[in-house]
């Protein structure tokens, strides 16, 4: 009995030495290179396993991220108390201004409804949301994605638009059963068809991994000024029309860049907007653009 255990122990040690030695490193290095080649040559082959792994790890990541997010919320709450007085005065002023806007909005809504009736325009006025908690984000400056703890089981679908706070933050690119991945609009691979409010000029909002995406395919005489609102155009039929995206700001070099309405670094919860059955019918619905 003892000799058989000893033999097993020797063979175990031999295989361990092989795995632990240079041979093991060389083998796994070649295997990793093979994976990388497949990832570029046939990315679809690995997308299924990626979703599966994300689904499996979701409960662990969700559990571990919760205390950190609670801590961040608590710290934010404490630092918020210090500026509470000044913020209160600011909110009072803002509230007074918003009351005036509310009256204007009611008037416009009534006018809009009557015009829609006159035109007999068939519009989709209601969108459903799925609210999801962010559990993981990209570890560095190269990939801008988020993982949320809602997936196909909760009705999330690929290419749905995602909002946080005051505006759009990106779209769903991968859906598992219990997890989904959001490609942020600041990611270098992100392209969002947008429209410049007021001028109806169309452009493509392109991420460059910085905090401020840029507008492409825009004529030079577009007349963009700081503060101009950018909303989704709905072109391509992927996103609804009118989701607020951001506003134009002028950087230090005088270039016009877009500041997203949502703070990409401090997202805890997101709203995933349901896809529309016929996106061509929703032009004219500005229900999301009221800020």
């Amino acid at each position: 009995m003892k000799s058989s255990i000893k033999q097993k122990s020797v063979s175990y040690s031999a295989s361990l030495a092989l795995l632990n030695g240079r041979a093991g490193s060389v083998f796994f290095l070649f295997l990793a290179v093979g994976f990388l080649i497949i990832a570029f040559a046939r990315p679809a082959v690995l997308s299924g396993p990626r979703v599966g792994v994300t689904d499996v790890f979701m409960p662990v990541l969700s559990t571990i991220s919760k205390p950190f997010q609670n801590m961040a919320a608590a710290v934010s709450g404490i630092s918020g108390k210090a500026t509470l007085k000044a913020e209160n005065a600011k909110l009072h002023a803002e509230n007074a201004r918003l009351r005036e806007w509310y009256q204007t909005a009611l008037m416009l809504q009534a006018e809009n409804q009557s015009l829609k009736k006159l035109l007999n325009l068939k519009v989709s006025t209601e969108h459903e949301y799925v609210t999801a908690r962010v559990v993981s984000d990209a570890g560095n400056a190269f990939v801008k994605t988020l993982l949320v703890a809602s997936g196909g089981n909760d009705g999330v679908k690929k290419n749905q638009a995602v909002l946080a706070g005051e505006g759009m933050i990106g779209r769903i690119v991968e859906v598992g059963n219990n997890a989904s991945r959001i490609l942020l609009l600041t990611d270098i691979n992100s392209r969002i068809p947008v429209i410049i409010e007021g001028s109806n000029q169309k452009a493509i909002l392109t991420g460059d991994n910085s905090q401020y995406p840029v507008l492409k395919h825009l004529p030079k005489d577009s007349g963009l000024v700081a503060g101009t609102r950018i909303i989704t155009s709905g072109d391509g039929g992927i996103f609804p029309f009118g989701l607020p995206v951001g506003k134009v700001i002028i950087d230090g070099k005088g270039q016009k860049i877009i500041q997203p309405y949502a703070d990409m670094n401090r997202i805890t919860y997101v709203r995933i907007v349901d896809a529309l059955s016929n996106p061509n019918l929703i032009r004219g619905d500005l229900s999301y653009s009221i800020n």
Partner: peptide, 29 residues
């Protein structure tokens, strides 16, 4: 062990949406 480091690298790539194999290579090296 290299196999363990390789698996960690692959999982890292899967979960952070990196090209699969990138961090497996870096970690093993």
């Amino acid at each position: 062990l290299p196999v363990y480091v390789f698996i960690l690298g692959i999982l890292f790539d899967f979960l952070l949406n990196y090209p699969i194999g990138l961090h497996a290579i870096l970690f093993v090296v």
